[in-house]
Design a protein around this nucleic acid. Structure first.
Lengths: 211, 211
DNA sequence: TCAATTTTGTTGCAAATGCAACAAAAAGTT
DNA sequence: AACTTTTTGTTGCATTTGCAACAAAATTGA
């Protein structure tokens, strides 16, 4: 998914100046490391410059939900989260580099009114738009009444993104169940039904729509 | 929900100049009128300056889902939607005034680089952040495995927003069911259970958490 | 104010779903 | 290669859920 970098169209030189001005800090996280937990309230946002991560919630029942999957150029932080009792955390799913910046450095124009700052805001705008689109996709899927409809809606979107009836799941079936907000075994059963009824064909994580 | 206007901190004089420059068009819609249907691809976005509206999808089964509820200062448009086969439309739920602007007028800085334009972009940024927060709330609720948990999650959020254990539903139970993505009668049943088990008290649309 | 429409509250029932549990397969680690 | 951990595929069963249908209550509108 071609994400836009917040530094798109800004020269490396200017980026470096900015990063200094913003007191931005880059950090590398190993696979499965916890990048951040949402506890108090910070206006610090993280930008993934390399790797992949997930926003996860563990509720009181121990149910794990993937709230978001984050990849390169994605932005995350408590600013985008609701006042929440639950345990939220960002975990790296592979080695990941994150750039931490205070959100207000981005939104509030600095006094010097450097021209690249407006470009930065503009880029951020595009990233947020993209995030909204992704969120809306997820909402559409989750709002479906049945596991079958959720699966089909998800497959439909994947198929469109790949411009092909065949696509590969970007994560495990276990994670897919979490993403769809359904029980894994029930989901597995439904996938079998879809196969038997001839709606789809599967080969490991490769899925083909046959309708 | 204190939304930020995209024109926050911009003088009326400047707003008028901008609207002209952007070829913005304001229109008034009666209750239940269709404001917009997502069909082709437009970069036109609508900003609600007065009233309330809903983004609705009717799927092939005739199931109606409220994808979003929109109020004053909210922004909507195909730019924030995914390439979608389904029938999506925005409907006014009361008399509503909408300002239509081409999204690229907002994101792309005009050549004149007028200072108020950056302010506009900044405001839009805040609106989008807010939208993401709202989306995340909805996702958290929808991702819950059971109707009971969805209800409780929703009530929890309402309670926090009102800073009170008591709050009033902002829409009908019928709409609430659509919002939670569950069957209305099943939801009604679950609300009764919650009452009987002493988790909540209700009085019409007024709900009190008793735990 | 009266009629028409929408919402609410309920129920029975069939179907879908979550849960628990387990073995086989696959992937990751040392 | 041997071992450990995770994922996958399956099943039985109790529970939850959606669906259909209907009457009562509330709301809307003429």
């Amino acid at each position: 998914m071609s994400h836009i970098s917040i530094f798109k169209n800004i020269t490396e030189d200017e980026i470096n100046k900015m990063l200094k001005c913003f007191e931005a800090k880059a950090r590398v996280f190993k696979k499965d490391a916890t990048i951040m937990t949402y506890l108090g309230s910070t206006s610090t946002v993280g930008i993934i410059t390399k790797g992949k991560a997930e926003l996860i919630r563990i509720d009181y029942n121990g149910n794990r939900t993937i709230l978001e999957t984050l990849e390169e150029n994605d932005i995350f932080g408590e600013v985008f989260s609701n006042y929440n009792v639950n345990e939220l955390s960002i975990k790296a799913t592979e080695e990941t580099t994150v750039l931490f910046i205070d959100y207000y450095h981005i939104t509030k124009r600095c006094k010097k009114a450097c021209p690249y700052h407006s470009k930065l805001v503009e880029n951020t705008l595009n990233i947020l738009s993209q995030k909204i689109v992704t969120n809306n996709e997820r909402i559409e899927i989750l709002a479906k009444r049945s596991t079958r409809d959720k699966l089909l809606a998800y497959f439909e979107i994947m198929s469109m993104k790949n411009i092909s009836k065949t696509f590969t799941l970007p994560f495990t079936f276990t994670d897919l169940a979490d993403y769809l907000g359904v029980d894994r075994s029930a989901m597995q059963r439904e996938i079998r039904n879809l196969k038997e009824e001839g709606f789809i064909k599967t080969n490991n994580k490769k899925i083909t729509l046959t309708y």
